[in-house]
Amino acid sequence: MEQNVKPKTSIDEGSLRAAPNNAKTVTKLVFVVIGMFGFGFALVPLYDVFCDIAGINGKTATTAAVYEPTLIDESRSITVDFITRTNTGMPWEFSVQTKSIDVHPGKLAKVDFYVRNPASRDIIAQAIPSISPGKAALYMNKTECFCFNHQPLKAGEEAIMPMTFFIDPQLPDEITYFTLQYTLYDITERVDEPVSVAMNKSQGR
């Protein structure tokens, strides 16, 4: 310790030089921190954008597409398979009336899904679509789909839910075949709307 007796010159200047800078640097860094916290949340919408570009998880658009009946690519036809599932806790019967269809890109096609609520309570459902391979989701355009809205059914009620779609003729040639899955979730407890609002469905059978 005896050694540390270098001539005392600049501690004060050193400190004075440092003090105001510190506040400035800290402020900048705190902004970076706040910005990155925000960025973490911004990743949520950004991810959806990436999904739209790249088709991760085979998510389809959540709003209706507008059909322009100009181009129909009759040179090839695409096979679309449908899978229906209900999630845990969802008592509905859910089936598709056409398990698989062949369709020309650009041509409008309609598929009917059947649902029945066997439970003794009213239930609101939400269908979540997923397409595999994911890339095909980018070319799947639905003009009408039960998955765009909540689907309520009263106890014991049944319904036919239509889905109308066309495949974008831009679909890459290597995709000749894809699968569209719908999973039905019971979201009654998540939403406050009354079950009487009937949307997008006609009485079945």
Partner: peptide, 14 residues
Amino acid sequence: LIAVMPVLAGVVTM
């Protein structure tokens, strides 16, 4: 650290 720890904070908040 200051770039990614806030992202961790964000994701645990979610």
